[in-house]
């Protein structure tokens, strides 16, 4: 329900030219942006309980106030930056259609608003990430923001966060 509302809101803002609020974060030297409405909270990196036989980018699960939340390291998934864990490592907790997922990033930068016309379609190029999950490239002066469709990415079979059968 909430998800539906958010999606409609996003669509409306795209169509009517309203600016959309995005949270930007860095992975290595790259700057990424995601829809801020999908973000539940931002917290530090805690002790994680590893899950047996999980892909390397799934760090494990944490206890988020009584809920078991899986943690994904996007740096490993996108093969950017160095996956090291310091007291300053940041986890963005996302709420995607009722599922709570945490993702480790290097740093959270700021919240910006981009008008639809500022988001250019991404050209097809070979990368560790399927371009299907990239909504576009945001131009903000000199900066280039990679706008990620985080919902699609997190629910994709590639992330192995969801049961195959559930898709």
């Amino acid at each position: 329900m909430l998800q539906a509302i958010q999606t409609t809101a996003a669509l409306e803002s795209e169509e009517s030219g309203f600016a959309q609020e995005l949270l930007t974060f860095t992975l290595g030297a790259e700057e990424y942006a995601i829809d801020i409405l999908k973000v539940q909270e931002i917290r530090g990196y805690d002790a994680v309980t590893t899950i047996a036989n999980a892909p390397s980018f799934i760090k494990g699960v944490i206890n988020l106030r009584g809920t078991i939340v899986p943690i994904v390291d996007l740096r490993i998934k996108f093969s950017v930056g160095v996956a090291e864990y310091t007291p300053f490592t940041v986890v963005i907790i996302l709420n995607i259609g009722g599922r709570v997922v945490g993702m480790v990033v290097d740093a959270v930068s700021d919240v910006i608003s981009l008008k639809p016309e500022q988001i250019r379609p991404a050209p097809d190029f070979a990368s560790s990430v399927d371009t299907a999950y990239i909504r576009g490239l945001g131009a903000l002066g000199e900066r280039m923001l990679i706008v990620v469709d985080i919902e699609r990415l997190m629910l994709s079979s590639e992330m192995a966060l969801v049961d195959e059968a559930a898709q």
């Binding site: 047996a52 939340v69 709570v100």
Partner: peptide, 27 residues
Amino acid sequence: IKSLEANYRRVPGIAGATIMGDGRVAL
């Protein structure tokens, strides 16, 4: 018992998760 599947998926050999006294998750 806490569900692992609520936010993750089924893991073969793991029935669920719980939170230990120190706040950590144990499977």
